[in-house]
């Protein structure tokens, strides 16, 4: 069981991820949403977040910068990138910045279950 923060500039994608988490049978309590890294940092304040799912390409603050900011605050919550980006170097940079794993869009609920099952 756990609270999840979904960070993606597409409201459609946030809804799809949210629905897919439930369809995947993952034990989710509250789901919070943010449209970019800056909104996500605000959304985290005062809340217990057990898992962060973040896009990479976003306006204002992208996913790579967002991970850096989260880790710089000393927060160790697992961050999994859910992104259209499949490039090795970008994903390596995400891991270096502190991401735990990545999931390529488009995805199925089964793929979410496989990647996130151990984190919730």
């Amino acid at each position: 069981m756990g609270n999840v923060l979904i960070v993606d500039d597409s409201s459609t994608m946030r809804k799809i991820i949210s629905r897919s988490l439930r369809q995947a049978g993952l034990q989710v309590d509250d789901i919070y949403e943010a449209g970019d890294g800056i909104e996500a940092l605000s959304a985290m304040e005062g809340k217990t977040i057990d898992l962060i799912l973040s896009d990479i390409n976003m306006p204002n603050m992208d996913g790579l910068e967002f991970i850096k900011c989260v880790r710089a605050k000393g927060v160790s919550t697992p961050i999994v990138m859910i992104t259209t980006e499949g490039g090795e170097d970008i994903l390596k940079e995400a891991i270096t910045n502190g991401a735990s794993d990545s999931i390529k869009k488009p995805f199925t609920p089964d793929q979410l279950n496989e990647k996130l099952g151990g984190l919730l």
Partner: peptide, 30 residues
């Protein structure tokens, strides 16, 4: 607008992957 934009974004991601193995030499727009 958001749904169509996100589909274009996912398809752009596939095209980027054919053209750039590392992913750092091509940027996708919003």
């Amino acid at each position: 607008n958001d749904a169509l934009g996100e589909i274009a974004n996912m398809l752009g991601g596939y095209v980027k992957q054919i053209l750039s193995k590392g992913g750092l030499d091509i940027n996708l727009s919003i």
